[in-house]
Design a protein around this nucleic acid. Structure first.
Lengths: 134, 134
DNA sequence: GTACACGTTAAACCTAACTTGAAGGTCAAG
DNA sequence: CTTGACCTTCAAGTTAGGTTTAACGTGTAC
């Protein structure tokens, strides 16, 4: 039996963010106290941690929501969830590949000597980098 | 000698985006035609491609700008640029690690059987996922 | 000479994901 | 019984990164 502040601290977000998630249909308090305070259980904490993890992956709230909605509707949605997860897995793989390419470009740039600008280059760093893009 | 539309097509953005970059101090046309049209050279295309590449890395325009500013100020800024690049390289490495962790979680989830919800789980997918976060 | 694409500006609008502010109620400590 | 931390709602503000619109000039093809 947690108040919004407790949940917020455990999840690492502000109470205002949780209220915002509620407006977006992401979480709902288990109930309300006689004082009107939102009351949550640990399930909410788990759910929000899932949301945060997904977010840190670059998945938007809009994309996360259907996962949660399906999940809250009983048994067989998991098949659909699985399909969504598969799609996201592919996107993540692609993101990783892109980042590795960038990483390699940056590493190559860092290996270059400093202070020896070539003719016709604003800065070797930029020229070399863009050269690989073109 | 390119107009904004030419540059935009080569870089893969809209002219409005280039004007926006200009307001943000990212690019400036080499000059203006007698008609008032912005005139760019290939340098601008290179620079913008660099910007796009950096952006696709998750680097913000605000972070990219000092790199360009330093680059445009002559010879020795490359040392500073290098330091910034080093920092970004570390951030990219961390992002890649995070994504790989997520990727592994998703893959593990996808290997699980569908339609066999365990007791006390909203959906195995979510429960398993969040379990690793806690 | 009239479409039609392209260029100019300034200002307004957009989405995501929140935060902040105002105006107020609640609760535990001293 | 007041102080301070925490809660409520609703509305408005924020940041990033642009896009859209209005009102207008330009350049080219038929």
């Amino acid at each position: 039996m947690l108040t919004i502040g407790h949940v917020a601290r455990r999840v690492g977000v502000r109470p205002s963010a949780i209220r915002y998630y509620e407006t977006q249909g992401m979480v709902r308090p288990t109930g309300r106290g006689p004082n009107g305070y939102r009351i949550y259980t640990n399930e909410a904490v788990k759910l929000l941690l899932f949301v945060k993890r997904a977010q840190s992956l670059g998945i938007t709230l809009r994309e996360i929501k259907p996962l949660l909605n399906l999940a809250s509707q009983g048994q067989p949605p998991c098949g659909h969830v699985k399909q969504l997860a598969r799609t996201h897995l592919q996107q993540i793989d692609e993101k990783i590949r892109e980042l590795q390419t960038l990483r390699n470009v940056l590493r190559a740039l860092l290996r270059r000597k400093v202070g020896r600008p070539h003719a016709n280059e604003i800065c070797p760093m930029i020229e070399r980098s863009t050269a690989k893009v073109e």
